[in-house]
């Protein structure tokens, strides 16, 4: 279809969309006057029911836990998809005389980075890991959780790449470990769900002791699922990053030699 045709189709679509959107807005309460029963009820009862102070985490990992399980598997499937897509090409590129990885590593260095980036990055790796772990572990108490903390943890892997070279990244987060973390995270979530079944209740029921509200060791399965998701997301995103970095090296190699 020509660009002009597509523009016309777009104009038609936007027209239809705006009509439907305005119609939909008509039925919504005005901004700032939310009246949803579900949210208001949760705000009233969730802290007493689940002993978690971050209600977003309580909703994500408990009240809507099954939904998030599906989402965790979307993440898993997407990561596997990225790995499969990018790896097929990698094998094609590998010729037999490249088997000796250690001697090839010289040419696989990242482009020269400035000392300022190296020093700053190196200084940030430790705090980033600590911060990521803190965000994961306190998901049920304060803003944060497994998804956010997991991404912060994966940033640490990216910092390793920035300050050192790709080889260092491979050593810090080898593929076998990130793949394992990704699988353990997704599988662990499902396994925690089965605890509920074992006690004769529904899948993903929060059956563990809830502890004291506000303590680190509280809110039952919400904490456990947070940890599982944190491990899974950190592994998944590190894997995605590693696959893309591997690609840039492949492309660079092909262009220069």
């Amino acid at each position: 279809m020509s660009l002009r045709g597509r523009r016309n189709l777009f104009a038609l679509g936007v027209l239809g969309f705006s009509v439907l959107f305005l119609w939909g807005l008509n039925g919504l309460p005005a901004f700032g006057h939310y009246e949803g029963v579900y949210g208001i009820t949760l705000n009233r009862v969730a802290v007493t029911q689940r002993h978690a102070t971050n209600l977003v985490a309580a909703v994500t990992f408990d009240y809507r836990g099954f939904d998030t399980l599906g989402e965790e598997f979307i993440l898993f499937a997407a990561v596997v998809g990225v790995a499969i897509l990018l790896r097929a090409q990698r094998d094609e590129a590998a010729t037999p005389d490249e088997e000796d990885e250690e001697t090839k590593d010289e040419s696989r260095d990242a482009p020269h980075t400035s000392d300022a980036v190296r020093v700053l990055g190196l200084a940030l790796i430790g705090p980033t890991v600590l911060f990521g772990l803190y965000i994961v572990a306190h998901g049920h108490l304060t803003p944060g959780g497994g998804f956010q903390g997991g991404v912060v943890l994966a940033t640490a892997a990216l910092l390793v790449y920035l300050t050192g070279e790709y080889v260092a990244l491979r050593r810090v987060s080898p593929e076998s470990v990130t793949e394992l973390a990704e699988s353990v995270g997704a599988g662990g979530y499902a396994a925690i769900g089965f605890i509920g079944l074992l006690t004769g209740q529904a899948f993903l029921t929060n059956v563990l002791p809830l502890g004291m509200t506000g303590q680190l060791n509280s809110s039952g399965t919400i904490l456990l699922i947070n940890l599982a998701v944190g491990v899974g997301v950190a592994g998944g995103f590190s894997l995605i990053l590693a696959e893309f970095l591997e690609q840039t090296l492949l492309v660079r190699e092909r262009e220069h030699g």
């Binding site: 949803g36 579900y38 705000n43 969730a46 994500t60 809507r64 998030t68 989402e71 997301v233």
Partner: peptide, 14 residues
């Protein structure tokens, strides 16, 4: 409302 915030979180990750 915490529910829409949880949905947004899901949305961002996906």
């Amino acid at each position: 409302d915490p529910v829409v915030q949880a949905l947004t979180l899901t949305d961002v990750v996906v």
